[in-house]
């Protein structure tokens, strides 16, 4: 697939999503960049801001399998991965695939499940495969997890450990939309939900090809160095207990490649890296408790680093 075709795919999905989600162009860009770079996304926002809708809109736009798991404290790993059930007719165990065997998985309120279940999902996200009953099963080529979590409620939640946060390529928020956009949302949903009318616009093959094209976007050594410098600076930043890992560097580079493709470029420019630095890096930082109490946030640290490190121009 050539870059212009790839860009068209991007545009199609973005336009499709914008029919449902108004005023969220920037999160959509990020979401699509994550999709094309093969990373997973954690959406963290208040209830009712459209996280699930966004995920659904994306799933519907692509003609791919879509599953949704509502995480609850009593959810078991087998509920996600699948279970082998004994069939009395042929006296054999038959594996019943769980919701994870899909292309796009929406893990709603991921922090409500027990750590055991969370890690079952996260392992699958990292490896692209699951092992059930000693048998290794590969997941689909396109396996994209959109997890959501809600930052207000703490009771009955199991916050994701830092090591597992690292498995998400990006974490970002949607935020409240502008009043005008909110009015448009009201208008659109007056009769029925626009999501119901949403039809797929690209095929699974298109998205797979898109992923391959994104991988081929060129990035100069200088910008790789810039990525490494940005990530490295978080390790020595004030108030940070644990900086971002090289995995963050890789994710940032891949996401920047995808975003460059989205912008119609054949190579990465510093703008894409700067745009993605906060969503890719911030959630991986472990802040010192005293820094946290003094109001220093991981997001602030990354923004500072971006402002401090000399950008190639």
């Amino acid at each position: 697939m050539n870059p212009s075709a790839a860009r068209e795919v991007f545009q199609k999905i973005a336009t499709n999503i914008s029919r449902v989600i108004q005023g969220h162009a920037a999160p959509t860009r990020k979401l699509l960049a994550a999709l094309a770079s093969g990373g997973h996304v954690l959406l963290e926002d208040f209830p009712g801001t459209g996280k699930t809708t966004l995920a659904k809109a994306l799933a519907r736009s692509v003609d791919a399998k879509f599953k949704r798991v509502q995480f609850t404290p009593d959810l078991l790993p087998s509920d996600i991965l699948g279970v082998a059930i004994f069939n009395q007719l042929d006296q054999q165990f038959h594996f019943h695939e769980g919701p994870i065997f899909t292309n796009i998985l929406l893990a709603d309120e991921i922090n409500r499940a027990s750590p055991r279940t969370q890690s079952a999902l996260l392992e699958a996200m990292g490896e692209g495969q699951v092992s059930v009953d000693g048998e290794r099963r590969n997941l689909a080529d396109l396996f994209f997890v959109i997890a959501t979590q809600n930052p207000v409620e703490f009771r009955g939640t199991y916050p994701l450990p830092e090591a597992q946060m690292d498995r998400f390529a990006m974490q970002f928020t949607l935020g409240y939309v502008q009043p005008a956009d909110e009015v448009a949302v009201l208008t659109a949903q007056a009769n029925n939900h626009p999501l119901d009318a949403l039809a797929s616009c690209v095929t699974l093959a298109d998205v797979t090809a898109l992923k391959h094209t994104a991988q081929n976007i060129r990035i100069s050594d200088e910008l790789k160095r810039y990525v490494v410098d940005l990530v490295g600076a978080t390790r020595s930043a004030n108030g940070v207990q644990l900086g971002a890992s090289p995995r963050a560097s890789i994710a940032l580079m891949k996401a920047a490649q995808a975003l460059a493709l989205f912008d119609g470029l054949e190579f990465v420019t510093p703008e894409q890296i700067q745009e993605l630095a906060v969503p890719v890096i911030a959630h991986r930082l472990v802040m010192q408790p005293q820094a946290r109490f003094s109001g220093l946030t991981a997001r602030g640290v990354v923004e500072d680093v971006v402002k401090k490190i000399k950008v190639p121009a």
Partner: peptide, 21 residues
């Protein structure tokens, strides 16, 4: 050109990419 424009009162900071500038 960048130098000339900076001299005209729009200097670019070190961390500012060209498009933002």
């Amino acid at each position: 050109l960048e130098k000339k424009i900076a001299a005209r009162g729009v200097p670019r900071s070190d961390a500012e990419p060209l498009n933002l500038w």
